[in-house]
Amino acid sequence: TYVQALFDFDPQEDGELGFRRGDFIHVMDNSDPNWWKGACHGQTGMFPRNYVTPVN
């Protein structure tokens, strides 16, 4: 499953995934309602669910 970033996200903690608005992120785990795990630009980490939108 892929999502697209609605906003820039700069990691604040180790293990978070940084990205820029418009980036596509491969979702690896969406079991938590607020923080998902994904991959983008060769990196993996957690990111806030409300920063992304589903891609059809």
Score class of each variant (00 low, 15 high):
P48K: 09
G22I: 00
Y2E: 08
D23I: 00
N30W: 10
A39K: 13
P48N: 08
F47W: 00
D23H: 03
T1M: 14
W35L: 12
T1R: 07
F24S: 08
D32V: 02
H26M: 13
R49W: 04
F9W: 09
Y51H: 13
G15C: 09
D32Y: 03
P33V: 13
I25N: 01
Y51I: 11
G42K: 06
D8R: 03
D29I: 01
V52F: 01
H26E: 14
N50L: 08
Q4P: 00
Y51A: 12
H41Y: 08
F7S: 11
M46D: 05
Q43Y: 07
Q4A: 04
P48V: 01
P33D: 15
F19Y: 02
D10I: 10
R49Y: 05
F24E: 14
V55N: 03
N34W: 10
M28K: 04
C40D: 01
M28P: 02
D14P: 14
L6W: 03
W35H: 08
L6E: 11
A5I: 02
L6Q: 11
V27L: 12
V55E: 10
K37F: 08
Q43E: 15
N34S: 12
M28S: 10
R49M: 09
M46P: 01
F19Q: 01
R20Y: 10
R21I: 09
E16T: 10
N50Q: 15
P48S: 04
D29E: 12
T44G: 03
T53E: 14
E16H: 15
G42I: 00
F24V: 14
E16P: 02
N30V: 10
G42T: 04
M46G: 05
P54L: 15
G18S: 14
I25M: 01
D14F: 08
Q12F: 10
R21T: 08
G45Q: 02
F47G: 02
V52K: 00
V55H: 11
N50C: 07
P33K: 08
V55Q: 15
R20D: 04
G15N: 11
Y2M: 14
P54C: 10
L17P: 00
Y2G: 05
K37N: 05
F47K: 01
W36M: 09
Y51G: 03
N30Y: 12
V55W: 09
T53F: 09
F9A: 06
A5M: 01
